[in-house]
């Protein structure tokens, strides 16, 4: 493939202009300001300029900088993992499930472990859905069980066994010091230990989830912001068909 080198665009091709802001844990003075500039240099920015610096009290200071990225990237060398499936609408998903499965698809969902924020799982699962996209509960070929917030991984897996789930859908919204990664790994470990991993279509969603990250964590798919019930359902039925054929 032809090379395609790019760098950030400010107002002229290849000027590399980027903005940056951060806090330093020292009061503001000429030294800390120069420190901020040198930090930007060390980050790979040419001609960095501190355009704003302000003392924040309690020994902290805030900086806004502009600079020119030294680096460039060849887009032609990049491959990004994307779930390969056709996104159908609600009727399309229902029809495909009816045709291929001949029964309802069972989806068990939850916010796991410490996460108490159900916005994401509710948007995908609840009848009402989100932003005009109806949730899985409204799909007559899907049996959607939303276990809500702060569900232990064990409890989720037990429910999945009890309900003979085809799909487990987990949401991780709140994240501090990357706790969501530990939570997600724990769930996939438990499924593995229960010998269920092969049978279950395991999906994760959340504002900081990408498909690539999900794959790394041992999930079948990951859905980030702007994903709706039909995206998740389309993936699930496609995956089910693919596994059946294999």
């Amino acid at each position: 493939m032809a090379e395609q080198w790019i760098k950030p665009y400010g107002d002229t091709q290849d000027d590399g202009r980027v903005q940056l802001s951060f806090t330093l844990p020292v009061p503001l003075d000429e030294v800390s300001k120069e420190g901020a500039r040198r930090l930007a240099l060390a980050m790979g920015l040419d001609e960095p300029a501190v355009v704003h610096a302000e003392d924040m009290g309690q020994g902290f200071s805030f900086y806004v900088l502009y600079g020119q990225s030294k680096h460039r990237i060849d887009l032609s060398t990049i491959q990004v993992a994307k779930p390969e499936f056709e996104v159908l609408d609600k009727d399309g998903v229902n029809a495909l499930i009816a045709e291929k499965m001949g029964r309802k698809m069972v989806v068990v969902g939850a916010c796991i472990e410490t996460d108490a924020h159900t916005v994401g799982i509710d948007a995908i699962m609840n009848m009402k859905g989100y932003n005009g996209h109806k949730g899985l509960e409204s799909y007559h070929e899907v049996r959607a069980i939303n276990m809500g917030a702060q569900v232990d991984s064990e409890e989720l897996v037990a429910r999945a066994i009890e309900e003979q789930a085809d799909v487990i859908l987990v949401s991780q919204v709140v994240t501090q010091k990357n706790i969501h990664l530990d939570n997600l790994t724990r769930l996939s470990d438990i499924l593995e230990a229960e010998g269920m991993r092969e049978r279950i279509i395991l999906v994760v969603g959340g504002p900081r989830i990408s498909h690539e990250l999900a794959k790394e964590l041992g999930y079948d798919a990951g859905f980030g912001p702007k994903s709706y019930a039909e995206d998740v359902a389309s993936f699930a039925i496609n995956e089910w068909i693919k596994r059946k054929a294999a």
Binding site: F22, T23, M56, F60, V174, T175, Q176, P207, R208, P225
Partner: peptide, 8 residues
């Protein structure tokens, strides 16, 4: 929508 707030 991203993280627990940074000091800035």
């Amino acid at each position: 929508a991203i993280h627990t707030p940074f000091i800035q």
